[in-house]
Design a protein around this nucleic acid. Structure first.
Lengths: 186, 186
DNA sequence: CGTGAATGCAAGTGTTCGCTTGCATTCACG
DNA sequence: CGTGAATGCAAGCGAACACTTGCATTCACG
């Protein structure tokens, strides 16, 4: 019964268990069970829990591709690309994102894992700066712009973990961008 | 040396340790040390860690008061009241909020504790609806409006846990409201 | 003072964690 | 069929956890 389970399947199990249980409760036993392999095999293949998490996050984030190589003349289109990406991320991995953000402050091992999503953010910064220079966006630290753009989306996604009854539908990226640019005044 | 420490002081220590360390790492030893009492005393007075957490969160949230009894003609002023409240909450208890959102999904205890913040949200809903009816705000589910308003603030506060180098300053509530109403177009 | 309740202190309980080890089984591949 | 590497399985290690216990000390209050 040595049916080999691919790394990808194991990584998927890691993220699923973390999303459901949190990092501390995502025990190696639970992960092994979810992946359908033996706990000892987990350590023989991935060395440690930290390394396993790092590889799982890396695999997930490289799987997500964000294409914003060539920012152009259309702010709305470029922001929509960014918002759509994060909308998908929070929809599929909201629990993981929430857990990692919470854990990052006191767990260096989690913080180091977040270096890769961070590098993605730097590319987002450049797109925002590009449009600021074009005079299409308010000039401010690009990270502030990013938080203002994506914050509503993130909060709505996180709120669904607490608030069962309201706002079950995910936000529409196009509407988010439009409101971001034009404001909420009627 | 049996100097008695009040419950309020212990609750403060609980929330401080949770905000700094996270729920799992907020060990009963760490809480006892932070409160300046013995670990055994903690259990003699509060029975269990879970019960201690429940009392601490309850005590903290009933302490926060938000005054928006009389929404008037000034959207900007009313939204500023709301944003200022949540800015203060995230600044002082951001770590706790993050932890509770994360924990809510698999801990009925935590979820039940969140009923009190929820009742506050219902009052916020009414203020938003009031200004929607006046024609001062885009008409949409009020919770969506709320997430769009406060999301940028929350995300910026949470991001500081991950992103050490950038945007250390807390957001200015007045600026948040202004951008929310008028948009980010330059 | 005197006394009872609350506390500090140190040691210990049982459980669970990340991680390891020894050995039998299985599979891919020549 | 033969062989070596990967796996399953069961047991266990040391550490950390929530929580307990016995006893000496302290304090509030009469």
């Amino acid at each position: 019964m040595a049916g080999r389970v691919s790394d990808e399947v194991v990584f998927g199990a890691v993220l699923a268990v973390i999303a459901e249980q949190g990092y501390e409760r995502a025990t190696t036993r639970a992960i092994a069970d979810a992946a359908g392999i033996n706990e000892a095999t987990l350590f023989r293949r991935f060395t440690s829990k930290q390394n396993l998490l790092r590889q799982a996050v890396r695999s997930n984030f490289t799987g997500f591709a964000l294409d914003l190589d060539a920012p152009g003349d259309d702010v709305e289109a470029d922001l929509l690309t960014i918002v759509s990406y994060y909308a998908r991320l929070y929809e599929t991995r909201g629990g993981v994102v929430l857990t990692l953000m919470r854990e990052a402050k006191f767990s260096p091992e989690v913080a180091s894992v977040l270096a890769e999503p961070e590098s993605l953010l730097e590319r987002v910064d450049e797109v925002i700066l590009h449009h600021q220079r074009r005079g299409a966006l308010v000039v401010e630290p690009p990270r502030h712009t990013f938080f203002a753009l994506v914050g509503p989306l993130m909060m709505r996604s996180f709120a669904r973990r607490v608030d069962k009854r309201a706002t079950q539908a995910p936000a529409d990226p196009a509407a988010v961008v439009r409101r971001f640019l034009h404001g909420h005044r009627a």
